[in-house]
Design a binder for these strands. Structure first.
Lengths: 210, 210
DNA sequence: GTTTAAATTAAACGTTTGTTTAACTTTGCC
DNA sequence: GGCAAAGTTAAACAAACGTTTAATTTAAAC
C-alpha cells in the first residue's frame, strides 16, 4: 500500500464518513472537499475520480481486514469454543471499530450490478468463512460440537447481527440505563453487549443437546 | 390507503426495484419513467416528487407490515416455542417475499440524518420487538425459557440475518447443489434454509441448559 | 355536440453533478 | 537565482439531475 499525505488522508477520512452517512451517490465531491477543507480539484488530482476515491477507501480497509484475518489464523493452542469466542470478540471489535466503513460495505453489497468492489466484499466474506469452517468441522469430528449446524448461515448471522447493530445504536442509546455514559463508554458497552450475545448464541447452537 | 391506477402501480413497482438495486440517489426519475414506460412528468404529476415517491412506497409497504403484525397477535393457543417458530417462519416468508423493499429499508436505515422514513422504520421494529418480548418474558416466568437472554439482541439477530441473506443469495446460488433449481424453487429453498437455521438458533438459546 | 376536468406529452427550466482547464504558487534541486 | 516538478486554485465545462411549463389529447358529464 502506498503512503498517503495528510491531505489525502483527510480526504479519505471525510469521504468515508460522508459515504457512510449519506451514501455514495448522496455525497457530492463538493461536500467532501468542503468538509476536508481542500479544493474540489484535489480529489481528481489525487484519486482520479469519485469512483476511484471509493475504490481507494475499499482497498485501504480491505487490506487491513485481510491482515486482520491472517493474524487470527495464528493462535492455535485454544479449545474450539475458546477459538470461536476469540473470533467473535475480535470480529465485533474490528467491525464496530470501523463503523463508517462497515456502513459503506452494507450499502455496496446491496448493489445488484457486478462491480470490482462487490467482488472484493464477497471474496473477503469467503475468507472469513474459510477461517471459521475448519474450526467447527474439526470440533464436530472430535465430538465437541453439535453436528447439525449450518456454518454458512452462522457466519451470515454473525455479520448480519453486527451490521444490524450499527444503525440501531442511535436508537438503543435512548433506552436502558446507558444515558449517562459518554460516547466512548457507550461504544464499549455496545461492543460488549453484542459480543456477549453472539458468544451465548454460538455456544448454545454448537454445544447444546437436543 | 388510496387506490392506485395500473400506471401508478407500474411506477411504484419499477421504482421499488431500481431503488433497491441502485439506491435512491443512484436512480434517476428518467430511469424509472423509461422502465415503467411512462412520461417523466407523470412521476411528479402523480406523486409530487421523487422524495414523495419513496415515501409512498414506504407507506404502502409499512401499512401492509403493520397489518401483518396485527395478524400475528391473534393465534394464542400455541406453546411458546411454537409461537416463536411460527413468528420466525412468517417473518422470513414476509421479508424474503418483498426483497426489493427490504433492500431499500436496509439502505434507508443507514442514513444518519433524521427523516420521517427512518422514524417509521424504527417504529415498526419497535412494534415487532413488542410482539416477541411478551412471548419470551411469559415463557421465562413460567420456567419454560432460559432466563439469561437479550431479547432486543435476538430481534437484531433475526432482522440482521435475513437482511444479510438477501444480498448473499446471488453468491450462495453458485455453491451447494442448488444449481439445477429454477428461480422460484431456489427462493423457496433459501426461505427454508434461513427459517430452519433461525429456528434452531432460537430454540438453542431459549431452551438449552448451561 | 359542447364543456370541463383529467391525463399525457415534448420541451425547457434552473441546479447540481463530476471533471477539466489554465493560470498561479510552492517546493526541491542543481 | 533559476528551473522543473508538484501542488493548488478559481473558473469553466458539458452532462445529468429533478421539476415545471404550456400545449395537446383523452375521458366523462350534461
Amino acid at each position: 500500500m502506498e503512503e498517503y499525505s495528510e491531505k489525502q488522508l483527510s480526504i479519505l477520512k471525510v469521504a468515508e464518513r460522508l459515504f457512510a452517512d449519506q451514501g455514495f451517490h448522496g455525497t457530492s465531491v463538493r461536500d467532501i472537499a468542503q468538509e476536508a477543507d481542500v479544493n474540489i480539484a484535489m480529489i481528481s488530482y489525487y484519486f482520479g475520480s469519485k469512483d476511484k476515491l471509493l475504490e481507494t477507501i475499499f482497498k485501504y480497509r480491505l487490506e487491513a481486514s485481510r491482515k486482520f484475518i491472517n493474524e487470527l489464523l495464528e493462535n492455535d493452542t485454544m479449545e474450539p469454543l475458546e477459538k470461536i469466542n476469540s473470533l467473535i470478540d475480535r470480529f465485533v471489535n474490528k467491525m464496530l471499530g470501523e463503523q463508517y466503513f462497515q456502513c459503506i460495505m452494507s450499502r455496496e453489497q446491496l448493489n445488484s450490478q457486478q462491480s470490482p468492489i462487490r467482488d472484493l466484499i464477497w471474496q473477503l466474506k469467503g475468507e472469513m468463512l474459510g477461517l471459521m469452517r475448519p474450526i467447527v468441522t474439526r470440533a464436530q469430528e472430535a465430538g465437541i460440537f453439535y453436528k447439525d449446524v449450518d456454518v454458512e448461515m452462522l457466519m451470515t448471522t454473525l455479520f448480519g447481527t453486527i451490521h444490524q447493530v450499527i444503525p440501531a445504536q442511535h436508537i438503543l442509546r435512548s433506552s436502558s440505563g446507558v444515558e449517562d455514559l459518554n460516547d466512548d463508554e457507550y461504544r464499549e458497552s455496545v461492543k460488549n453487549r453484542v459480543s456477549t450475545h453472539l458468544k451465548k448464541l454460538f455456544k448454545a447452537i454448537l454445544k447444546h443437546e437436543f
